[in-house]
Design a protein around this nucleic acid. Structure first.
Lengths: 105, 105
DNA sequence: TATAATACATAGTATTGCTAGGTGTCAAGA
DNA sequence: TCTTGACACCTAGCAATACTATGTATTATA
């Protein structure tokens, strides 16, 4: 998988991963890897700045969890994040259809 | 359509557009716009550097056409470009399936 | 005759995911 | 006990790429 392929679609993946559950960064990496059948195996240097960016944009909220001694920052969708997810999903559908129209012609 | 969405997928589109015909840059823009139903409306500052890059990489060949008084650089797939197209198509299928697995979960 | 469409080109910009390196906790095995 | 690996977070700097803005020139159209 090329490094540039993901560009512009990572936000969609993160928002979608948090659509029906809250999770911390390391767990999100696991979710994306498993649910994608191993296609997405994101390095931490990708995931953490992206989560910060989304939180800064108001699409995610977070809190520190200290259930175990290990600190975890747990992220969840905000209302704005849910709207953004819906929009990104539509954009993905449109993009995907358009690419298939070119490639599958 | 977000500016970043296309990143990493433009090469696939260009190679696919040239899969069954040769065309010059301006015409490729038209092909992509029409075949995508208007989704892809690429500015010239996107298309020309990309074509140069692909030619430099050996995936495209080109020649100047002067049928009309207007100069046109006509591009066509090389053998290497055809192989690259096949690979990019597979990568797209995999990527697309993986995203749908996350989003449509 | 002026405007728009056709057709090419490139310098500079902004965004973004990745590499590489760092800190610290916890469990398991030597 | 010590070491290794998994877990869990963070950031600075890098590389790649599509876009903006701008320029040149030809042809068709109003």
């Amino acid at each position: 998988m090329n490094a540039e392929t993901l560009k512009g679609h990572l936000d969609l993946l993160l928002l979608a991963a948090l659509a029906d559950r809250s999770a911390h960064g390391y767990a999100i990496v696991e979710i994306l890897r498993v649910d994608s059948g191993g296609t997405f195996d994101l390095p931490e240097g990708t995931i953490y700045p992206a989560l910060h960016r989304l939180e800064h944009a108001g699409l995610l909220g977070s809190y520190w969890s200290a259930e175990t001694g290990r600190r975890r920052r747990v992220y969840q969708l905000t209302a704005k994040g849910q709207q953004a997810l819906a929009q990104r999903q539509q954009e993905w559908q449109q993009f995907s259809r358009a690419v298939n129209a070119i490639v599958g012609a």
